[in-house]
Design a binder for these strands. Sequence first.
DNA 1: ATTGACTTTACGGTTTCCCGTAAGATATTT
DNA 2: AAATATCTTACGGGAAACCGTAAAGTCAAT
Lengths: 221, 221
Amino acid sequence: MIDKVLIAEDHESASISIQKTLEDLGINQADYVYYCDDALSKIRTASQQQHPYDLLITDLYFEDDGRVQSIPGGIELIAAARQLQPELKVLVFSAENKPTVLETLFDTHQVDGYVRKARNDAKELNLAITEITQNRRYLPRHTSQLIKQKNSHAFTDRDIAIISLLASGISQKNIPDHLKQQNIVPFKLSSVEKRLKLIKTTLEFSKNEQLVVFCKDMGII
Amino acid sequence: MIDKVLIAEDHESASISIQKTLEDLGINQADYVYYCDDALSKIRTASQQQHPYDLLITDLYFEDDGRVQSIPGGIELIAAARQLQPELKVLVFSAENKPTVLETLFDTHQVDGYVRKARNDAKELNLAITEITQNRRYLPRHTSQLIKQKNSHAFTDRDIAIISLLASGISQKNIPDHLKQQNIVPFKLSSVEKRLKLIKTTLEFSKNEQLVVFCKDMGII
DNA sequence: ATTGACTTTACGGTTTCCCGTAAGATATTT
DNA sequence: AAATATCTTACGGGAAACCGTAAAGTCAAT
């Protein structure tokens, strides 16, 4: 049974809707915070006082408004919260739709539910909480479609480093220097050239410009 | 005085928050729709029945879910609504933050208010409606900062065409063909080279890759 | 029509990128 | 340890991009 819920959401309007949904479900012990750091400290305190939260509903992205935060976003919050309280249920409520991000949420973080901010998100939220109450996971069915896409390439950290350098204006012939500095191997120019060629071939791209916008769109960089 | 409000917002959760805010302000005649087409037909009917809306609160982006819509988004909705009912007040409620988009909203569409979906958006929504009730515009103060940014370049349609071609994988030396096909002049390679160099110089960029991601981020392409 | 200011194109040299092949290094298998 | 496979680097030729200069074209004003 889910009695005590914590909402971590920086958008006040979204937070209000979540609170209303919890009310509709008869859940009266709902706390809400606008920063990840506050969320973690509440989880810690509740856990220490032998009255832990049953469910964390969290957004993924928290806007920086000047207040220094040690936890930058939802993913890090989930990791930190689970370390304090491993059995804590987690429901992510976010507009995020990028395959790579969702994949890590489902696989490495094993979230119990995911509701995307979209047309029927309030009804979905209600449904998701109901499912989680019964110890089931609530993951959108079209997720698998999103993850699988034609000619997909698994980007390594090195790939991301290289493409990020390109996107930041570094000339290809200078990339070896930067890779070396970051202790990324192999770092020689010809290996960089080969790798870029491979990526572009599998994705059926012809130019670097195309590749960087793709990575932007996909949230890879 | 504002009595009758229409909410055009595809996110159910956001719509609920807006409705709650209106309740808090004592505005009881609030209709809400999830599609732009529905919004326009409601505005038309209300206007014809001599009981028009006082305020339209609308999102900018409406997700395509298969239902065919003639009005794709908020900007087009605003234009169509103003044509039917020129004195209609418009308050935009969106996560949008790109300078170019906001500029057209404020300047060419003359919206009465803009609230960005962010940390204190519910309070801001309340404030904005109060301001509009008193015939004042409510525009965020940091807007001017956003629009004005160092080394800014005014992108022409031709610039956008060129950069879009680059981003879609067209080789620079083939751009002249495509420009010619689109009847964009000048179209010769050397003029394209010169233009790209100018843009990159003013923005202090060194590579095309950098330029295309910038334009992606800014919503220029 | 001529001048002058400005825009567009032509052209050539240099740099960077692209891409194949071959040599060298590293890891794996037997 | 030798053989094999795989990965990394070296190198070189050709293509594309970069960049300056000069020529050709365009336009406005007198």
